[in-house]
C-alpha cells in the first residue's frame, strides 16, 4: 500500500510546552492508523496541524507527496483532508440533511450562485442522504442538527466528513461521550469504512482501537514513543508503563 499522508519531523510548542515533539508518522491508502496517548499528549493539536487549524513550528505534512503544511484549512479540505472534532462541530441551526448537503455543495459546482433554492437541488440532497444513511441517520434528515442526541451529532459529523469525498479522514475521539449502544454503532460504522479510506483515528477506547486499527502509535508528551502492529504495541513494556499502565 502506498503512503497517502506523511508527517515528517513535526514540531509545535505553546510557549514552553512542547505539544508536538519531532513527530514522524504516516498513513497508507486504506489504512486505519490509530493514535493513542494520555490526555494532554498533543493528539488533538496534531490533528489541528494536519487539517490546518494550527500552524506547526517546523516539519512537513505531505499529502500524496505534496507539502500542505502552509495551506489554509479550506484548501486542504478540497484536497481531500476531512476531519471530525473532539467537541462536535456542526451547524446546529441547519437540518441534518442540510449540514451534509453543504459539504456536497462545497465540491459540486459553484457556491457563487445567488438565485435558486439549494434545498430543492435533488443532486445535493440525494448525495447528502446517501451519506446520512451510511451513519444510520437517514431517518433523522429533517431534524435540526442542534436537536439531535449527542451520539447522533457525532454520527452527523462523520457523514459531513464523508460527503466531502475525502482521501483521508482525521477522527478525533469519535466515541467520546457516547453511550454503550451508540459507541457499538460507531465502531460498526468505522469497521465498514475501514479499507475504503485512509483513516487517522484518535481514540481512548482501547477495545475499539485494538479492534479497528491496522497500526497503533503511542503519543506521550508530544512524542511518538511506540508505533507498530496493535499486538506489538500492546506488548511493548515501555508503552505499558507510560500509558496502558494507567488504564489497567
Amino acid at each position: 500500500m502506498s503512503t497517502l499522508l506523511r508527517i515528517e519531523n513535526l514540531h509545535k510548542s505553546f510557549g514552553a510546552l512542547r505539544v508536538t515533539d519531532d513527530v514522524t508518522l504516516d498513513v497508507a491508502e486504506g489504512e486505519l492508523h490509530a493514535v493513542i496517548g494520555p490526555n494532554g499528549a498533543g493528539k488533538t493539536t496534531l490533528i489541528h496541524q494536519i487539517s490546518g487549524l494550527v500552524a506547526p513550528d517546523s516539519g512537513r505534512i505531505l499529502l500524496d507527496g505534496a507539502d500542505i503544511a502552509l495551506l489554509p484549512p479550506h484548501k486542504r479540505a478540497t484536497m481531500g483532508v476531512a476531519r471530525t472534532f473532539q467537541i462536535t462541530s456542526i451547524l446546529p441551526g441547519f437540518s441534518a440533511l442540510e449540514n451534509v448537503a453543504l459539504a456536497v455543495q462545497a465540491r459540486e459546482g459553484s457556491s457563487f450562485r445567488f438565485f435558486g433554492d439549494p434545498t430543492r437541488e435533488e443532486r445535493l440532497n440525494a448525495q447528502a442522504l446517501e451519506n446520512l444513511a451510511i451513519v444510520n441517520l437517514a431517518g433523522r434528515a429533517d431534524i435540526p442538527a442542534g436537536e439531535l442526541s449527542h451520539g447522533e451529532k457525532r454520527q452527523l459529523e462523520l457523514a459531513i466528513a464523508l460527503a466531502t469525498r475525502p482521501r483521508i479522514l482525521l477522527l478525533d475521539e469519535p466515541l467520546a461521550g457516547t453511550g454503550r449502544e451508540e459507541s457499538e454503532r460507531v465502531v460498526a460504522t468505522l469497521q465498514a469504512l475501514k479499507g475504503r479510506y485512509a483513516i487517522l483515528l484518535i481514540e481512548h477506547d482501547m477495545d475499539a482501537v485494538f479492534a479497528l486499527a491496522d497500526r497503533v502509535s503511542v503519543l506521550v508528551y508530544g512524542a511518538v514513543v511506540a508505533s507498530g502492529a496493535p499486538d506489538a504495541v500492546r506488548a511493548d513494556p515501555e508503552v505499558r508503563r507510560a500509558y496502558l499502565g494507567e488504564e489497567v
Binding site: P73, A77, T78, A82, L91, A161, T164
Partner: peptide
Amino acid sequence: ENPVRMQAIG
C-alpha cells in the same frame, strides 16, 4: 453559525 466547520468542508 460555525466558520471552522465551513472551512473544514472546503
